[in-house]
């Protein structure tokens, strides 16, 4: 059962991947696209450039960002034992934004996010490091507060407020910054899967891959944490080191992706619920790969919708993820309420 669902997901991802590459402001015939993807030379150089330099990196970024965000959401939901947890909900991406803003605004008047990225490897690492550190900081705060606040909804509100506080810190900084920087930062907050290519894509892939490995190492601990800290301890788990591992991998995943793609909402909170519903399990050994696949698929679909055929403009990815993700969140809250009655 488990395998056949995985195969279907793989197939769907492949289809979505091709569709995503096929759509864009310039029409390129499907056969030509297949040729480029399979490594053949085609006559039209600009088509080949568009596919290799723009569309393929964007589709790969979608897959990486979708998997990473979904898995970071899964880990947060288990760690906080809160079905409404997710990187964008509990202020983790806001923390990452703070990290990015600090780098951007303190880099000076002339540099912008894109020029920092153009610095190459060191610049990219700087942003990822700042972003992950910001994410880890907020996550640690949320963990401290969640020890005292048991109510899921109250915790959710506190998380949103933490996010607001973090973002207003950014706003204060913005207020005293040069207009070009503000515009640059604002564009970043809309979220974008484009603009990650070459070295950055490799760095992002490495960071997310490393984060996912950490998550896999923590998968058994995550299972035990479903019962809460005291039960987990009685099963022989070192809760402290498990938490450090989970916070590290979540911050790397959410922070790294936010640094390069901007704060993308709702994928992290929605995908774990879809994974549990489709695979009917709570075992992280199954849920982690399931979240990777569903997250990648959902992100590809969002990207397809953001550049609907016939339309010349591209919608910010955040708008689409919110449109698809919010109903899932509403469904989760409604179902819990119903169960309680």
């Amino acid at each position: 059962m488990f395998n056949y669902r995985l195969y279907i997901l793989f197939l769907l991802i492949l289809i979505a991947f091709l569709v995503d590459i096929a759509f864009g402001s310039i029409h390129i015939p499907l056969l030509q696209i297949l040729d480029v993807v399979s490594g053949k030379q085609i006559e039209n150089d600009s088509w080949s450039f568009i596919i290799q330099q723009i569309r393929l990196p964007k589709a790969f970024t979608a897959i990486i960002a979708g998997s990473g965000l979904a898995v970071s959401g899964l880990q947060m939901q288990t760690l906080f034992r809160n079905p409404l947890a997710g990187p964008s909900v509990l202020g983790i991406t806001a923390g990452a934004s703070l990290g990015v803003a600090i780098v951007m605004f303190s880099a000076g008047t002339i540099t912008s996010l894109y020029t920092i990225k153009e610095l190459g490897i060191s610049g990219s690492w700087l942003i990822i490091l700042a972003s992950s550190a910001g994410a880890a900081l907020v996550m640690f705060l949320v963990l401290l507060i969640s020890g005292a606040v048991k109510d899921h909804i109250v915790m959710l509100i506190i998380g949103v407020m933490l996010g607001n506080i973090t973002l207003s810190l950014v706003s204060i900084w913005q207020y005293y910054s040069a207009p070009e920087l503000i515009k640059d930062y604002l564009m970043w907050t809309f979220g974008s899967l484009g603009g990650v290519n070459g070295v950055q894509l490799m760095i992002l892939t490495a960071v997310v891959f490393f984060g996912l490995i950490l998550t896999f190492i923590a998968s058994k601990s995550l299972d035990a944490l479903l019962l809460g800290d005291r039960y987990a301890m009685s099963l022989g788990l070192s809760v402290k080191s498990a938490r450090i591992l989970i916070i590290s991998s979540t911050s790397l995943l959410a922070g790294g992706i936010t640094a390069f793609c901007g704060p993308i909402g709702f994928v992290g909170i929605a995908v774990p619920h879809l994974a549990r519903a489709i695979f009917q399990t709570s075992s992280h050994r199954v849920l982690i790969p399931a979240c990777c696949l569903i997250g990648a698929l959902l992100m590809l679909i969002c990207d397809i919708f953001s550049q609907l055929p016939g339309s010349q403009s591209v919608l910010p990815i955040n708008i689409i993820t919110a449109l698809i993700g919010s109903p899932v969140v509403i469904w989760v809250i409604a179902r819990r309420q119903k169960r309680r009655d």
């Binding site: 034992r81 809160n82 079905p83 058994k220 479903l226 019962l227 809460g228 099963l235 022989g236 709570s282």
Partner: peptide, 28 residues
Amino acid sequence: LSEKVTGSNLDVYNLIALGRYPYSGWFG
């Protein structure tokens, strides 16, 4: 413990299975 385990999305079999945690391998 007296506290109830809630919101875990676990079914009963998998909850009992967590008792095998100290014996199972790296990935449980």
